[in-house]
C-alpha cells in the first residue's frame, strides 16, 4: 500500500515535507497503527505516539486522509490510496506526527475536571441513584485523544480562548453530576464570548470521536442550563 506521511524534524528540516512510502507487505486487513509500525521498521526516523493499540489510551490520534482519527482503530481497507497521514491539526508539531498537547490539556484543566463537593466527607462514598449515574453515560468515556478539538474550526481559530469540544464535554460531565455542588461557579466560568460560545454547532467533533461521544449535545445542554439559571 502507498502512504504519504508528514515529516518534520525541527533540528534538521527547514520546513515540513511529505514523504512517500510504498510497502507491499502492508495489507488492507491491517489498521493504520500496524502499518506505521512496519514503516518505522524500514525508516526508524519516523516518530509517532502509540501505546495500547485498542482505542483505550488515546495516544495515537492523527490526521488520516483529512480527518482526526485513532491510528489503532482506523482500518486501511476503508482508506483511499495513497493514505495521507499528518499530525492532528491546530496543535504545534514537535516532530513528524507528534504534537504538543499542552494547550489542549490547559483547556481541559480550565473546566475543573473533578468533583467539587463542600459537604463533610461521607464515611463511605458519595451515593448516587441509578438514574443520576446514567446521566454521566456518554460523557465519562472520553479518552482525551484530542480528535474532536483538533477537528474543530473554532478551536483552530482560537485555541487559547475557546475551550474546545473535549473540555466542554467534560464541563458538562461535572455539571450533570448529581454529587457536584459548583454548578453556578462552573457556569460563571463559561460565560463570555469565547470559552463556550465559539461553538457554532459545526459538529466535526461528533463526526470524528472514536468513542462515539457527542460534545455538541453536551454543549447544547450547558447552554440550556445557563439559560435556565438566567431567567
Amino acid at each position: 500500500m502507498r502512504f504519504r506521511i508528514y515529516r518534520y524534524n525541527p533540528e534538521t528540516d527547514r520546513e515540513p515535507y511529505m514523504q512517500e512510502y510504498d510497502l507491499p507487505e502492508i495489507g488492507a486487513d491491517m489498521v493504520v497503527r500496524e502499518a506505521l509500525i512496519i514503516i518505522k521498521g524500514v525508516d526508524e526516523t519516523l516518530s509517532f505516539r502509540h501505546s495500547c493499540g485498542e482505542g483505550v489510551c488515546g495516544s495515537d490520534a492523527m490526521n488520516i486522509n483529512g480527518r482526526s482519527a485513532l491510528a489503532c482503530l482506523t482500518k486501511l481497507a476503508d482508506l483511499a490510496e495513497p493514505v495521507e497521514i499528518r499530525p492532528v491539526a491546530g496543535l504545534p508539531v514537535i516532530r513528524d506526527l507528534v504534537v504538543d498537547m499542552t494547550g489542549f490539556y490547559r483547556q481541559y484543566r480550565a473546566v475543573k475536571p473533578y468533583l467539587i463537593n463542600r459537604d463533610p466527607e461521607p464515611e463511605i462514598e458519595h451515593l448516587q441513584s441509578i438514574e443520576d449515574r446514567e446521566k454521566l453515560d456518554g460523557l465519562y468515556e472520553c479518552i482525551m485523544c484530542g480528535c474532536c478539538s483538533t477537528m474543530c474550526p473554532s478551536f483552530w481559530w482560537n485555541p487559547d480562548k475557546y475551550l474546545g469540544p473535549q473540555a466542554l464535554l467534560q464541563a458538562w460531565r461535572f455539571l450533570a453530576d448529581s454529587r457536584d455542588q459548583a454548578t453556578d461557579e462552573r457556569l460563571d466560568d463559561l460565560e463570555g464570548p469565547y470559552k463556550l460560545y465559539r461553538c457554532h454547532t459545526i459538529m466535526n467533533c461528533v463526526e470524528v470521536c472514536p468513542k462515539g461521544l457527542n460534545p455538541t449535545k453536551a454543549i447544547g445542554h450547558i447552554k440550556q442550563l445557563m439559560l435556565k439559571k438566567a431567567i
Binding site: L190, E191, G192, P193, K195, L196, Y197, K223, M226, L227, A230
Partner: peptide, 8 residues
C-alpha cells in the same frame, strides 16, 4: 461580558 456570551 454577560451580554457577550449567553445573551448574544
Amino acid at each position: 461580558r454577560q451580554a457577550a456570551g449567553m445573551r448574544a
